[in-house]
Write a protein that binds this DNA or RNA. Sequence first.
DNA 1: GAGCGGGATCCAAGCCTTCG
DNA 2: CGAAGGCTTGGATCCCGCTC
Length: 380
Amino acid sequence: MARKSSIKNLKNARRAKNDEFYTQYGDIQKEIEKYLEYNPDTFRNKVVYCNCDDPFESNFFRYFVLNFNKLGLKQLITTSCKPSPVANTQLELFGNGKTLSKSKGRPKITANKFTINEVFDIDADGEFNLKDVAKQLKANKNNEWVPLEGDGDFRSDECISLLEQSDIVVTNPPFSLFREYVKQLFDHKKRFLIIGNINCITYKEVFQKIKSNEIWLGNGMGRWISGFIVPESYDLYGTEARIDENGNRIVATNNCLWLTNLDHGRRHQPMPLMTMAENLKYSKHKEIKGKRSYDKYDNYDAIEVPFTDAIPGDYKGVMGVPVTFLDKYNPEQFEILGNSNVRGEREHLMNKKKSATDCTYINGIPQYARILIKNKKVKK
DNA sequence: GAGCGGGATCCAAGCCTTCG
DNA sequence: CGAAGGCTTGGATCCCGCTC
């Protein structure tokens, strides 16, 4: 099979739990600009907390420092999930490692906390680097760098205490702890903008929140996030990996998305839709085009819509659509009824005569996860 | 309430197709 | 022909419900 190698990767990834993917500056900027377009005050007077970000490497930290005044931030807090290997070599910039705890006379490298309350002009070299960070820290007593007591795990007491102080959390959390991470955000009723894998949509906890419009997708998925920077140790292979002009090792996974509860304009734009008849005649998808009608599921009273842009604008019943539909989802236009792959979210839609329960079926052939939706605008 | 069996869930990084 | 769009993939582990 052509996909054999990807299955191998899948299994390796499952074992390795590789969480060291760094988000690129341009991708962060591109996404946040969209919230500002919708509401320029989205971040004004807010405390932003990046709780999975080594300040020495994180572009989230870099973005929020460089745009601190433009966004009108009240404060930026950044904590790393683990001790930074980079910090080790950069201590002299901060003067004798003064803020580091000492152990047997030698500085003990720990996880870091950076707090930025005020940002002055960055030196005019056009680059933002560790020197600039150091300058910010030295320039103002309100800005500080201190070691954390523990390892900087977002679940630790000290990080939860920082979470309590913050208004908006923005980061790319470790995927292997994603569900726990989201739960914590909701437990503490925080606003957030985070990166997740497309399949997180089908996590039970996440899907329930999407259905109830407590979580929604950001401004794009897939290639909207152009890629992630991976460490040296990461093996680059396949057609989507590259090294950029700065020597960064990039993998374009094309399977990630922004997840948020900050409002933005895209989710209020209605999807343009063709009628069923038009789709059957003009659709660019051969699975639809030329057919007499849309397929019906064996085990659901709903029609199969294999591509998001083949959703008809004149069907009043239940439609099964790919999870990528959520990228275009407008809650004023559509209602989400369930998800064929989430237990507890599908039983009410199933045709009880059929036995297969794990997904939607057409003529006995299983389909991938489908979100079951209804068009709110079509009258009964 | 421990043990067991089998179906449900879940993992991440591509690959294939179409477009311009 | 490069860029962008669209959505898999299948086995290890989890978890639920049943039996003893």
